[in-house]
Nucleic acid binder design. Structure first.
Length: 194
DNA sequence: CGAACGATTAGCT
DNA sequence: GCTAATCGTTCGA
């Protein structure tokens, strides 16, 4: 039924990929759910880890599209990105929240909470619930343990400013599933710019 | 080599 | 709403 996304599906620019990923289903070792919130980052983007060029940390952002870029946030959390565009460019999509669908018990055990809305609503929480660590950095998204299914319907998306950054706040490169209760934070009501 | 700073979260006021 | 926790990465001296 559902189409599995392959490397070529991540060849677009990060904004397009980020919006297209809303409604897709991400599983890691069979645990995961529907992507409801993403953020786009690009080489020509002061808020992006890739802005200053390749470094030891961000090297997978400059690798082939369709792979994972995993980084440590605030020395505490593991956050997951999908590399997109083309090899050498340095573009990616941060996966910020999913609606838990599969492996709820494993997620609850890893997170230590019961409320489904607190399992994967935020990049750090999602990383913990899906047991993401640095050993997934650079791994192909179309091979185990990853499984990314294309959205099975036309989901209505909303856009707004990205969260937790201090530069390029005027760009509305955060995307969400309209009306989802599993967002890390609500989107301001009204319009859907960009 | 030292220092500042996060693509965050949880807990308390 | 405000802040501590916590440490790898990055940049300047």
């Amino acid at each position: 039924m559902k189409k599995l996304l392959r490397s070529a599906d991540f060849a677009g620019d990060s904004q397009t990929v980020a919006r297209t990923l809303i409604g897709a289903v991400l599983l890691i070792d069979g645990v995961g759910g529907r992507i409801v919130e993403t953020e786009a980052y690009d080489r020509a983007d002061p808020a992006s880890h890739s802005f200053a060029g390749p470094t030891a940390r961000n090297q997978s952002m400059f690798g082939p599209p369709g792979r994972a870029y995993v980084y440590r946030s605030y020395g505490i959390h593991w956050c997951l990105n999908f590399v997109c565009r083309e090899e050498g460019h340095g573009a990616g999509v941060l996966i910020r929240a999913i609606e838990p669908l599969e492996g709820l018990d494993a997620m609850r055990r890893r997170r230590g909470v019961d409320d489904p809305r607190l399992l994967c609503s935020g990049p750090g929480r999602l990383g913990q619930a899906l047991a993401i660590t640095h050993d997934l950095n650079g791994r192909r998204l179309d091979q185990p343990p990853f499984q990314v299914h294309a959205a099975d319907a036309a989901y209505e998306t909303v856009a707004g400013p990205r969260i937790g950054i201090s530069k390029a706040t005027e760009l509305h490169w955060r995307f969400g599933l309209a009306g989802s209760r599993f967002l890390s934070r609500p989107f301001s009501r009204g319009r859907t710019p960009d």
